[in-house]
Design a protein around this nucleic acid. Structure first.
Length: 583
DNA sequence: CGTGGCTGCCC
DNA sequence: ATTCTGC
DNA sequence: GCAGAATGGGCAGCCACG
């Protein structure tokens, strides 16, 4: 017995309206119970709005969908904008538009509503189109499907295409629903979801084999596992207290987190989101094959970009290696990598994720050479811990990760067993030069801000001097300011609301959902690093910028300059990698 | 054949 | 990735 | 305290288009 997609859409509408998490879970529990084992995994994907990333890659985003909506309904940009501004949601906007301007339907006979299986097959086909004119084929397929279904189905089909559900029911609550629907302990569902990376499959398994089926799901070599996440701590001393007085500190390295699976001579490398990236790192594969003394294992670690001497390079360099297929050999010569391992999840037939961290680390030390291990210090002394933190920074790393010695590997759960402690840089005082209306629940507020520093080196401006919106904003202000980043983080909803009121009085120009502002509002901005920017005209950008507070006491003459931004950028790498700047 | 826009994924 | 918010 | 929503910079690949 198959389930109609429209039933699932109605369920999502209920979730959207319901605030209570418990009730949301109950609604989904009922749905999962009555659905067939063939379709239950599709329901899991469609409700959470996420397909396992190794299963389907659609290569369809906002832009494509926007074009499709426009084409099918034949509306203008302004009509779309007016409708979008009411909700800030693309799926809802399409639903409203199609109710008023229904697409010309191609159906000549009465069509049955689509089943979950049929809808999934559409997604599969979208993913499968590659190569020449694949974009057109994807687009045509979506167009023909959207013109056959109801506006409500359009809404959720589109939401699934972009993966933004906004109904407050994501993977965490789905795990609860699955546990409840099949009468299994939540922890067991979580574990199964983590070792398979596919909650839909777990659900299908439960449906077919009943509640005992879940015992059969366990870590398997070449089946990537969801990584354990860390919470934030302010400093090493706080981490010590939260871990009960004694803990393990490791350098926090700024690269890409990977897990490496090996069985006999076969090696695979997976990313944090379980994508296989083996091909990008042939030198790592060789190291793993020759330098680790075990036949089969799953290890976890970080690959960082380094000079040939092993000194860390900025994060941007690893991105030139990550996922690279073209010019691999040449890039390898220019950007070396260093692998640091920090965990062992499986070794020669034994699953270790339930074992305490200190035991896993000990076994890791037995099979891996010392220089391949993340530097570690186990201590109960806050002074020593602080020294270790300083040492990490001095060596060009991000800070420390504290790991509770007794803790099991609980992938996905952001608990307090692992704590990250990151270095803090001096803040910058910047002016808000432009802003954008937000999306979803923030659609009525100017919630995204362009941050700019004072520019002392003003050069003559030419008509054609800009390519991006940020450049245009600078031009409007005669280049007196330079944009160094954008942020939506740091302010509370109340502050955003109040600020929106103030900013509306400063509008110089409107551009779609963006506004250019008179330079007036000064904010103190924190960030984790200053990066080289190919996007902004001053050449620098803030990484992870967030507003600390609004500086009512400061005028725009008192904000920081691009010179200062440059100084901080250069200071960042002076101690470690002085020579990379010249390259 | 080069380039720009879009997408996915890393942090 | 970071931050805030409702449950 | 957890789960979810909102959304940053920047990299490579890939396709569309001139």
């Amino acid at each position: 017995m198959s389930t109609h997609f429209i039933e699932l859409c109605k369920l999502c509408e209920q979730l959207e309206k319901e605030a209570s998490r418990n009730l949301k879970v109950n609604i989904v529990v009922d749905f999962l119970r009555k659905i067939s084992s063939e379709e239950v995994k599709f329901a899991v994907y469609f409700i959470t709005g996420k397909f396992p990333s190794n299963l389907l890659t659609l290569n369809v985003g906002y832009s494509t969908i926007y074009q499709i909506i426009k084409k099918l309904s034949n509306i203008s940009d302004n009509q779309y904008l007016t409708e979008y501004n009411k909700t800030g949601d693309m799926g809802e906007t399409a639903k409203k538009i199609f109710e008023i301007y229904p697409p010309k339907t191609q159906k000549t006979f009465f069509e049955q509503p689509s089943t979950l299986t049929e809808v999934y097959e559409i997604f599969q086909k979208i993913a499968e189109f590659t190569g020449e004119s694949s974009r057109v084929k994807k687009q045509r397929l979506i167009e023909s499907f959207l013109s056959k279904i109801t506006p409500l189905e359009v809404k959720y089909f589109i939401k699934n295409l972009i993966g933004e559900m906004r109904h407050g029911f994501s993977e965490g609550l789905m795990e609860e629903a699955v546990a409840k629907a099949f009468n299994v302990e939540l922890e067991k569902v979580r574990l199964a979801s983590m070792v398979t990376g596919d909650l839909g499959k777990v659900c299908e398994f439960l449906k077919i084999f009943g509640k005992d089926g879940i015992e059969k799901i366990s870590l398997t070599v070449f089946q990537p596992i969801k990584p354990m996440l860390a919470d934030l701590a302010k400093n090493p001393a706080e981490a010590l207290i939260r871990h009960g007085g004694k803990t393990s500190f490791e350098f926090k390295l700024d690269g890409v987190r990977i897990q490496i699976h090996k069985k006999n001579s076969n090696v695979k490398i997976f990313s944090r989101r379980l994508k296989e990236v083996t091909e990008a790192f042939p030198e790592i594969v060789e190291k793993i094959k020759h330098e680790i003394k075990a036949d089969s294992f799953v290890v976890e670690g970080e690959i960082i970009p380094t000079t040939k001497n092993g000194k860390p390079l900025p994060f941007q360099y690893i991105m030139r290696r990550y996922g690279r297929v073209k010019n691999l050999e040449k890039t390898i010569k220019n950007i070396a990598t260093t692998l640091y391992l920090f965990d062992l999840l499986y070794l020669d037939g034994e699953v270790l994720i339930g074992k305490p961290f200190y035991e896993r680390r000990k076994k890791l030390e037995e099979i891996a050479p010392n220089q391949m291990l993340t530097p570690q210090l186990i201590t109960s002394n806050p002074v020593e811990a602080e020294k270790f933190f300083e040492e990490a920074i001095k060596n060009g790393h991000e800070g420390l990760v504290a790991k509770q010695l007794e803790s099991a590997y609980t992938p996905g759960i952001r608990g307090k067993k692992w704590l990250k402690i990151k270095k803090v840089l001096e803040t910058l005082d910047l002016v808000i030069l432009a802003a954008e209306y937000g999306h979803g629940y923030r659609h009525d507020w100017l919630s995204d801000y362009y941050l700019a520093a004072k520019n002392l080196e003003v050069k003559p401006i030419f008509e054609k001097d800009y390519v991006s919106f940020a450049d245009y904003v600078e031009k409007i202000h005669n280049d007196r300011f330079k944009v160094v980043g954008k942020t939506f983080k740091g302010l509370t909803d109340e502050e955003i609301k109040t600020l929106t009121g103030k900013l509306k009085n400063l509008i110089l120009e409107k551009h779609g959902r963006a506004v250019i502002l008179k330079p007036k509002i000064v904010v103190e901005v924190a960030y984790s690093e200053i990066q080289k920017s190919p996007l902004y005209s001053c050449g620098y950008a803030l990484r992870f910028a967030r507003i600390v507070r609004i500086r009512e006491d400061k005028t725009i003459d008192e904000i920081d300059t691009t010179e200062k931004v440059k100084e901080i950028f250069e200071k960042q790498f002076k101690t470690t990698t002085s020579n990379f700047l010249e390259r």
